[in-house]
Write a protein that binds this DNA or RNA. Structure first.
Lengths: 241, 241
DNA sequence: CGGTTACTTGATAAGACTCAACATTAGTGG
DNA sequence: CCACTAATGTTGAGTCTTATCAAGTAACCG
């Protein structure tokens, strides 16, 4: 893990949603922070926490979920390397959800003071980071639409499209496959279904030969057909190019 | 509509989620903009638009919704007076959803350039506006959880709690009632249900004597019980005090 | 290995949807 | 201001998707 890994991750994350000048890139690459290795299922943020840093994912796979007093659980996001899952703590002190590692992961904790200093010095970076938090917002809206309006099969297909497109955007795909080390129970908690139904839905999707989820990996056999099936439009991810 | 109405609306909106100093308040009150009256069902923003201004609601009731190519529609938010529904256009050019008036409404269009200039001059206001956009994000996450995990009755109860609490926060309630001029079909589009089922759900809620929705108004007869029923926790609204 | 976690299957029930009709209300033009 | 029309709200019957419960199998971990 070299010293520039932190800045490189954030730079690559910001580059996929906007233009970064050379000067801005240099400034970002100068960022440092504490690297922390997380064990499977280890929390890095819990409701009530008020961290002095934001997280950048360097390796692994994380999820954000909310727990209600009545015990219901809703996964609100998945995070892959280069994602910055808790930028909102820059302006909202108290965290409301749990951020935890799905598999062993490395994250970097970048101090808010460092980020604020960087944004003060490079206003374009501030705009980009702000923009990033607004893209997250758009993604939440899409998750809302997905879980409110689609059938189980389409929901799953749509989520698979999202994870695959996001993975490709930062080069984390291996041809037609990418990491998605989640259990069926987690898929259920993300999609608003039960584990049993997820199992059956996965089988029915597999039978269409469009997509397969096994051994914690996603195998996309026919992206075009899958995207059409879920009516997936990547616009909400606001990717450049 | 006096000249200060615009700033007053935004000031009151920002004040409920954070501390505004006297100097900041004065700066906000100096904001101007074009006031536009919207007819019932009139759009102010459509997918593909790239406005040079953001909207502040002065009077009426607005909604934001996304339409998918397959024709499905999902309402993603309701906006009451003082709300600022399109602050995200400050950093994301292209709008993805439709913003439209549910009933005749007055909105103010505040130029991005004016907002940027204000935020440049008063960094605290920038933090507050950023924070506001992050609170919106938290609200989207709660809508996701609501529509993914709750039964129809609890969903409706939860939404009613939100609208009532938000209305009270800006003094728009009349005792135990507040404006909510939406049709049952709109409730369906917001909650991920069908119109028919919304009708039956409303009846069943009415029978519990906790809440009633009629003539475009919400009548909360027993907020405590309603909140407990929906396990409503207002924390996600990030209201001060 | 032994125990836990994850996945799979079957049977049944509940919640929500669809379709179709009708009642009521609100909006519009004569 | 009334009559007409469109939009909204209501009801019933039947269906389908998804949840629930219960059990068993496979994979993984210490």
């Amino acid at each position: 893990m070299n010293d520039r890994a932190i800045g490189e991750a954030l730079l690559s994350h910001l580059s996929i949603i906007g233009q970064v000048s050379n000067e801005d890139a240099d400034a970002i690459l100068g960022l440092g922070g504490e690297v922390r290795s997380l064990k499977r299922h280890e929390d890095i943020l819990k409701p009530g926490d008020a961290p002095k840093w934001s997280v950048v994912v360097l390796r692994g796979f994380l999820q954000r979920y909310g727990s209600r007093r009545d015990g219901l659980r809703q996964i609100q996001s998945f995070y892959i390397p280069t994602d910055a899952p808790s930028l909102e703590t820059l302006h909202i002190e108290k965290v409301q959800s749990t951020l935890c590692a799905v598999v062993p992961s490395d994250v970097c904790l970048v101090l808010h003071t460092d980020l604020h200093e960087l944004m003060e010095r490079r206003p374009n970076i501030r705009s980009l980071i702000w923009r990033e938090s607004l893209v997250q917002s758009a993604i939440f809206r899409e998750w809302l639409t997905r879980n409110s309006r689609l059938t189980a099969d389409a929901r799953m297909a749509h989520l698979f499209c999202e994870i695959f497109v996001r993975s490709c955007a930062v080069g984390l795909n291996d041809g037609e496959s990418c990491e998605m080390p989640v259990t069926q129970e987690m898929l259920a908690d993300a999609l608003g279904l039960t584990g049993v139904h997820v199992n059956r839905t996965l089988q029915s999707l597999r039978e269409t030969n469009m997509v397969e989820h096994k051994n914690g990996r996603l195998f996309i056999h026919d992206f075009k057909r899958l995207a059409a099936y879920a009516d997936f439009d990547p616009g909400y991810l606001h990717l450049r190019r």
